[in-house]
Amino acid sequence: MTGRTGAGPGTTASPGQLGLWLFLSTEVMMFGALLLAITLARLGRSGAAPFDKGLGAANTAILLTSSLLVAVAVERSGPCSGPGRARLPLVGAAALGVAFLAVKAVEYRADFAKGLVPGPDLFVNLYYVATALHAVHLTIGVALLAGLALVRPQPSTVEAAGLYWHFVDLVWVFLYPALYLVPG
């Protein structure tokens, strides 16, 4: 990937980086269609969203912080850094991912207790589809970060896992207002 027009040293992308961005673009289409469906379901109903926006905000803060740690891990995995310096931030980010899932589990429990179960309300159904699909992505991300913390990964591998993790964070940044912040 060297010698591209206009690309000087240090600005070339690895094939892995380009491939990952292409993969993320397909993910944008999947979650984007889901967000569109949520938007349409919101137009068809009245009243504020029934979900706990405080817990949703807490989970947003958790994911934003995990993204910071992943960005630090990518920074520390560079060729100028000593070996193993990325490990601590990777473990921290994975732990925050687990914390996110724990909060989500508490939230699901509270939702069920309130009678917010999958059923005739399309918006509630989409809430479960979107948050569960996001949780699956997050679980994969936690496994990736924890796995990288155990080995001594190549900088490009940490960068690829980091891009995926930031994307999972990005999806939540949009799911949070779409699902939780519905004006009454």
Binding site: M1, R4, A7, T11, T12, A13, Q17, L18, W21
Partner: peptide, 10 residues
């Protein structure tokens, strides 16, 4: 800071 090709993909 990415290469134009990557920005295009995104």
């Amino acid at each position: 800071a990415s290469q134009p090709l990557v920005r295009l993909a995104a």
